[in-house]
Design a protein around this nucleic acid. Structure first.
Lengths: 314, 314
DNA sequence: CTGTTAGCGCATTCAA
DNA sequence: TTGAATGCGCTAACAG
């Protein structure tokens, strides 16, 4: 093409204010460069105020941007498989990141049948079909946290885990198993009461912790949810319990968050930015029809700060 | 149509697993039912961890969902007008909600010229062209907060306000003006040092407050940013300052957030859910080509809790 | 190097 | 009530 012609065309484009129609382009190419993040309306509030999700969302957005994609928040009125499938099939994203409120094999098969690329934000079941997620090594996380408390002579430990309608999320099951392994190693018998199911929102968590401490006085807490961790800290502040002198606390989640709490929290730190990035990679591989490479779960790290102390023998 | 034919067609649809092509539909109808939320990559991290944004984002998502829209997060690598315009014109959203890092008349005219419907997340200038935002009554907010402190005998007050490259966001200017009005009413002379510009992220805020208290000992703080508020609380906890006995603090933002802090924070509470909902309304009206109805800014409310105390005269 | 054309999948119109 | 044809705006393929 002659440079002069090129120049002239560009001038006309400029003068007419021509903007290529994105929709037609997408239509023609079949690629929207949009990744759908599917979440139920009921869930969104809980999730938004959670530091772990904030980190994940940030990670997803950044990675997507790096790969030339944008994130479309797709809200489903209800959280069940058919509602999810309905909103998913009605959207133009190239692939979907699904925040399911619970285990969801029905959804998996619906999506597979429709050949829609998707990934989940976490492991939802032990079904070998459930492969499209990126996890951390939660067994290890539960183990190192419990081991550290046991090293500090704590034996009266409670593990506070989120539960949805009585069923435990897979990563919590893992953390509990890690906890149990540590107990066994130190010869401390596991009791059912050590696991305290809890609703991961501020007020419910606060009340549950209040209830717990009405009847029991554990010396240490493993808290599997950031909001519940804040609720616990608030409860102890309100009641005049000193952390770590009266109770030791270990949180689970992004380390930077726990550094903004007072006291600075000992925590099992997960590299959520890495996990999110890998999740986008996985989805993009599915979109491109490649056989996805499954990464090894990354090991979490125990960050020791000021919320844990050696138990004084009485 | 004969019911039997209808039935047969539906069966075939079902058996073939036919899913109508969303892209073609959008292409044909010219409506994507997508609202783009534009934000710069550099800004997203700061914004995500801010309680006010979380509330806003939740409000936007909920309202959009109610109206049958979804939110597309559009990340711009850079924050300037041309970068923003570039990503905006390359997206298929029906309209755009723009989180601009600063005042932006260039962007406004580019968008107007291209006839792209947009709204801003806040007021960016005193230019009468800048009409497409929904504000709260920030003058009133600054006023009632300062008045309350003055009623408690505080006169050595600092107002901590976020500033981007030395320039003040419009709502902060308003809050400062409200602050000044209250001072004038009580006959307390305004001094420049009362306004402390600050970067609204955790570590920077913490350091700035540290610097401030090295040289001065104000008895009360008005803090125009949630993250800075947490940083201040952390600093006081670390230094053994008691709130409110040694310093009084008033925050600005969504009231529910300040209730999760210890001590429970006295704050100027904004109804961010309402503002977000109105913002979507405004955008939808522009998309539909109606002349938008401009709402009166809503008055914030002073929520008195435990972070403010009467100053003892020495 | 330039100009022309077909076709993506749907919705809408017109004809039968 | 049904079938067939048109065109949305772009891209890619092809012919000149």
């Amino acid at each position: 093409m002659k440079p002069r012609t090129r120049q002239k065309v560009l001038e006309v484009i400029e003068s007419l204010g021509y903007i290529p129609n994105k929709t037609a382009r997408i239509f023609k190419s079949g690629k929207s460069y949009i990744l759908g993040l599917v979440i139920s309306q009921a869930h969104i509030s809980e999730v938004m105020s959670n530091a772990g999700f904030q980190a994940q969302f940030k990670g997803l957005t950044e990675k997507a941007h790096k790969e030339g994609y944008n994130i479309l928040i797709i809200t489903s009125a209800e959280g069940d498989a058919y509602s999810y499938f309905e909103v998913i099939k009605n959207q133009l994203a190239d692939g979907f990141i699904i925040f399911s409120p619970s285990q969801n094999d029905t959804l998996t098969s619906l999506l597979d049948e429709a050949e829609i690329p998707y990934v989940f934000n976490m492991k939802y079941s032990d079904n070998p079909q459930d492969r499209y997620y990126v996890s951390s090594d939660d067994f290890e996380g539960g183990y190192i946290a419990a081991k550290y408390l046991l090293d500090l002579n704590h034996t009266d430990i409670r593990m506070l885990v989120g539960s949805v309608k009585g069923s435990m999320l897979s990563f919590n099951v893992e953390r509990i198993n890690g906890f149990k392994k540590a107990l066994a190693q130190y010869g401390v018998p596991f009791k059912e009461e050590m696991i305290v199911p809890i609703i991961g929102q501020m007020d419910q968590s606060y009340n549950a912790i209040y209830q717990l401490f009405q009847t029991q006085k554990p010396s240490a807490l493993l808290i599997s949810n950031e909001i519940t961790t804040v609720a616990a800290l608030n409860y102890f502040a309100d009641q005049g319990y000193r952390v770590p002198q009266d109770v030791s606390i270990i949180g689970f989640g992004p380390s930077e968050f726990f550094r903004t709490l007072r006291p600075n929290l000992t925590n099992v730190g997960y590299d959520i930015s890495w996990t999110s990035s890998k999740l986008v990679d996985l989805l993009l591989q599915r979109i491109e029809g490649k056989t996805p490479s499954f990464e090894m779960p990354k090991k979490p790290e125990l960050v020791i700060r000021d919320s844990t102390a050696r138990l004084r023998q009485e």
